[in-house]
């Protein structure tokens, strides 16, 4: 088996409570995936790239995951990283491009990996939580909502976006962070004209959206006033177990959760595949 050239794109994250810079959890998971993959195939290289300020202290945390070297395309914040990244990556011609699924700063449209995959002629697989490479054939496990998993096969060269997942991220090793090198390359700084047109306001929690009702809303209101409401806040005192169980199952049915519906979902998805 020949070694792989694995490029990982790393961005700066933002802690949700304090707003402080941190590793982007998705990117950190992508890096962990890349390092684990490189360890299984001898001769593989992990080429980590960040576009931004090489002096950002948080970059050391990525090194702390066991990365020896991180290349930084030096550009001021707010620049469009695409042209420089494209140029850099074309020169590297990687077999595999791994990135986090979402950025935590800036526009965070998640578009960059798609644009790079397009430019590099790579097949893109989103939402990858597991990957198994045999030669140039890859089998990917995708995380679907509600804990479902789908398997996808595709050939190298590939780009994969990776979600952080729910397991905690590896803690960066202080010693490895100290040992790793940051290599800064001058890069083209092209300001993003689009961002200028955006009006920025301080973020505030939006109220939970209420649906606009056409009909039946008056009835609902009346019912809640007369206590005859049965959907929200229903209470059964000392029912016999059968009644209680039936009520619970009915409610689960309304929510669409009892297993029967799960199974039909599963079969439908596979049906779709067989039709294809």
């Amino acid at each position: 088996m020949t070694g792989l050239a694995i490029v990982v794109l790393l961005s700066l994250g933002r802690h949700p409570a304090t707003g402080r810079p941190r590793r982007n959890p998705d990117d950190a998971r992508a890096l962990a995936t890349a390092l684990a993959l490189a360890a299984t195939r001898s001769g593989s290289r992990v080429l980590a790239v960040h576009a931004g300020d090489p002096r950002a202290p948080v970059l050391r945390d990525y090194l702390g995951q066991g990365l020896d070297e991180l290349t930084v395309l030096d550009m001021p914040s707010g620049s469009d990283p695409l042209p420089s990244l494209r140029e850099h990556l074309v020169a590297l011609s990687p077999d595999l491009l791994l990135t986090g699924q979402r950025a935590e700063n800036g526009e965070a449209s998640g578009l960059l990996p798609y644009l790079l995959a397009e430019a590099l002629g790579m097949t893109l697989v989103p939402g990858v939580v597991g990957l198994d490479l045999q030669g140039d054939q890859g089998r990917f496990t995708q995380a679907l909502p509600r804990g479902r998993r789908r398997q996808i096969e595709a050939r190298l060269p590939l780009a994969a976006t990776i979600p952080a997942g729910t397991a905690g991220l590896p803690l960066p090793s202080f010693a490895a962070a100290r040992r790793g090198r940051i290599v800064s390359l001058p890069a083209l700084a092209s300001p993003d004209p689009h961002l200028v047109a955006i009006e920025r306001q301080p973020w505030r929690q939006l109220p939970r959206p209420q649906p606009r009702r056409l009909k039946g809303s008056a009835i609902d209101r009346l019912k809640s006033m007369t206590g005859g409401g049965e959907a929200k806040g229903r209470l059964l005192v000392d029912p016999d177990p059968e009644t209680a169980a039936a009520q619970i199952l009915d409610r689960l049915g309304e929510i669409g959760l009892i297993r029967a519906s799960h199974q039909s979902v599963t079969s439908r998805d596979t049906d779709g595949r067989t039709e294809r």
């Binding site: 097949t123 697989v125 496990t141 789908r150 689960l252």
Partner: peptide, 23 residues
């Protein structure tokens, strides 16, 4: 198509992390 769907993996609800499961 360059992506081939192999299908859904059977999911045991017990094996799901709590913050990912739906029920």
């Amino acid at each position: 198509a360059r992506l081939a769907n192999i299908g859904l993996l059977p999911v045991d609800p017990e094996s799901l992390p709590l913050d990912e499961t739906d029920f």
